[in-house]
């Protein structure tokens, strides 16, 4: 009996150890020597989520989500980009409005992952950029993107940043780093 209790205790201790060894609290304590872009826009500090009362969100994700949501509006209002996003407007008639929320979430997840967020809850789990922008591999992609449209897309993100108070005039380094980050995806996205 005593032996059984000891064995059970050992198993539970092992389970607790395994769980705690990969819990997100531990990842938060790891301080990188060079601050990531994610930490520079707020990092993993938990703050109240203004869009969801009573819920908490990492400050870095909150910043990126605000930029993404602003940028989606800018891109949606850009006639040059309209050919890539008609479905977002079309879903109004169909009564299926999940596209916009999904776009915002996926785009924010992608930005979180790309900027160095370590919280697995915010990890981007979609297709690779190359597959996602290849009409042959993704029937949601109607046309291939060209260089001019990609440049315009990055410019629209810049406008989205400015709407959140970040411009080259007041934070050139951050704007330059985010633009450089976006251009790392150019080879995969521009396929025409």
């Amino acid at each position: 009996m005593k032996k059984s209790v000891l064995t059970l205790t050992a198993c539970l201790s092992l389970a607790v150890f395994m769980y705690s060894s990969c819990s997100k609290e531990e990842t938060k304590t790891v301080t990188p020597t060079t601050p990531t872009l994610y930490s520079r826009v707020g990092g993993s500090t938990m703050v109240n989520d203004p869009n969801n009362s009573g819920q908490m969100i990492e400050a870095g994700r909150l910043t990126l989500r605000a930029v993404v949501d602003s940028s989606i509006l800018v891109i949606a209002g850009d006639p040059q980009m309209a050919k890539y996003f008609p479905v977002l407007f079309a879903e109004l008639g169909a009564g299926n409005t999940s596209g916009l929320v999904a776009l915002s979430k996926s785009f924010t997840d992608f930005m979180c992952t790309a900027t160095g967020c370590t919280n697995s809850a915010y990890a981007y789990k979609g297709k690779s950029m190359k597959a996602a922008h290849d009409p042959a591999q993704n029937n949601r992609m109607g046309v291939k993107a060209d260089k001019a449209d990609f440049d315009k897309f990055v410019g629209d993100i810049g406008v989205g940043l400015a709407q959140n108070g970040v411009t080259s005039a007041n934070n050139k380094q951050l704007v330059d780093d985010l633009v450089a980050l976006l251009y790392t995806t150019e080879a995969d996205i521009v396929q025409k």
Binding site: K83, Y84, F85, A90, G93, R140
Partner: peptide, 22 residues
Amino acid sequence: YVVTEAAANTGCPIGKDQTTFT
């Protein structure tokens, strides 16, 4: 602004991924 049916068949790929298992 009203989207034509033809245009509605195309769209941003990360918006609504219902084609894969995940």
